[in-house]
């Protein structure tokens, strides 16, 4: 396991039931103002945080919800808030 994800619908479940959906980057930018740089920044670029990050998950084997959680990428443990420390 190593990872459990708390689905807002189904509760805490085995991480393998979910699909990771990327770092939280905010809503889709308006298409008309997009430069190649800003497009690329939204689509491809990551912060690769070694610590707590907000990120998207989809409960693929479960209820079919997309939601965000905070997770510490150095421990694989969920956090309640971005600042949460052990």
């Amino acid at each position: 396991m190593a990872l459990t994800i708390t689905c807002p619908i189904c509760g805490k479940r085995n991480g393998y039931e979910f699909r990771y959906g990327g770092e939280e980057k905010g809503p889709r930018p308006d298409e008309k103002d997009l430069t190649p740089e800003s497009w690329c920044d939204y689509v491809h670029m990551n912060k690769c945080v070694a610590g707590v990050q907000q990120e998207w998950w989809f409960h693929r084997d479960g209820c079919g919800s997309w939601f965000t959680i905070f997770r510490d990428t150095t421990t694989n443990l969920e956090k309640e808030t971005p600042e949460a420390k052990e």
């Binding site: 699909r19 905010g26 809503p27 889709r28 079919g64 997309w66």
Partner: peptide
């Protein structure tokens, strides 16, 4: 497909 459509409309 469901995952894809819901992902791109999630906001």
């Amino acid at each position: 497909t469901i995952e894809w459509i819901r992902y791109h409309t999630r906001y």
